[in-house]
Amino acid sequence: MYNEMIYIYTIYEEGSFSKAAKKLYLTQSALSMAVQRIENNLNTILLDRTKRPLSLTLAGEAYIKKYLEISRLEKELLKELDDLSNLNKGELSFGGSQYILSYILLPVFYVFKKKYPHIKLNIIECSSDLLNSYILNGTIDICLKSEKIKDPFINHGLAFRDTLILAVPKAFIELFNLPKIYFTKEKLLDSTYLSFKNLPLEYLEKLPLIILSKGNNLYEITKKIATEHNLNLNIILEISQLVTALHLSSVGLGATLTTNILASKTFDNDLVYYKIDSLLTDRKFYFVTKSKGYLPKATLKFIEIAQDILNSNNRML
């Protein structure tokens, strides 16, 4: 029956019998006969053949939903069996933004892959608003989140923490008459920036701002800061990635909220930075998986390696 369900799912995914038959290495007539037999056995119609591309009937939607549940359970079973081979095979999928993948977890991926070379490591770059659905549907096994974690997700401990700061093109200092309480990358690296005064929040209304788009954690923080302090922000652009926003700021397009970690790892000399007077600028990121279902040994080992490396890095910040 599971193979039959794959036939229906492939037709639904491809939108036509011909494309599905090609993908399944079947003739179109053989696939049509198989589907007709399935529908006859179930005494119901699963596919609406009057529409192009093909669509599901209500019965078809229920059928596909159960197929996805069975497929998820099969993946969990395979992961459990993989554990029996002492991590000599298996798979681990991690999802996150460009900031998390390239600037936080890069050394973790390297060490994990070196220690467990036979574990297939899938790294999926995506915006933070997709992480919840990706974990629940099994696209990824684990991610990092900085918001409050609740069911159907579970928190596996602290990964790292960062601080939000305002990145400002140097030309804006004179253009907007900004106070001389800014600091440079060098001050970030030696942590002396911590003694600098905060930029008065009313300056956020004067500056053209580049912010992260809706669905990102930083979008919510930016809006909360504006609401709490009754600020009318001059938002000129919304971007899905933190790294891209910082690059756009570096060419003089606008100011942007970034992190102390990201700013300390860039090589641009055309930016200065300001501390922001808000408790919301201190962020903690946690390892997150779904709360129900089997947790593979590879995921636990990844968390163990990551905590060791990231704790060492945090002590150096």
Score class of each variant (00 low, 15 high):
Tyr99Pro: 00
Tyr99Lys: 03
Thr44Val: 12
Ile124Leu: 12
Ser93Gln: 05
Ser128Lys: 02
Ile104His: 02
Leu47Phe: 05
Leu77Asp: 06
Glu61Val: 09
Leu56Ala: 06
Lys66Gly: 04
Ile45Glu: 09
Asp83Gly: 06
Ser71Asn: 13
Ser127Asp: 10
Glu76Ser: 07
Thr57Asp: 05
Leu92Ser: 01
Ile123Glu: 00
Tyr110Phe: 13
Lys65Tyr: 08
Asn41Met: 12
Leu87Trp: 03
Ile45Cys: 07
Val111Asn: 01
Leu130Ala: 10
Leu77Ile: 13
Ile45Ser: 06
Tyr103Cys: 05
Lys114Gly: 04
Tyr110Ile: 12
Thr50Asp: 10
His118Tyr: 15
Lys114Glu: 12
Asn41Gly: 15
Leu42Arg: 15
Gly90Glu: 01
Tyr63Pro: 00
Glu91Phe: 13
Ala59Glu: 10
Leu78Gln: 11
Lys51Ser: 11
Ala59Arg: 06
Leu47Cys: 04
Lys114Gln: 14
Asn86Phe: 12
Gly96Trp: 04
Ser97Val: 00
Gln98Asn: 10
Tyr99Thr: 04
Lys79Glu: 15
Ala62Leu: 15
Phe112Gly: 00
Leu58Gly: 12
Ser97Trp: 00
Ser71Pro: 00
Ala59Leu: 07
Asn88Pro: 03
Leu106Lys: 15
Leu101Arg: 00
Gln98Glu: 14
Asn122Gln: 09
Leu77Lys: 11
Tyr116Cys: 03
Glu125Phe: 07
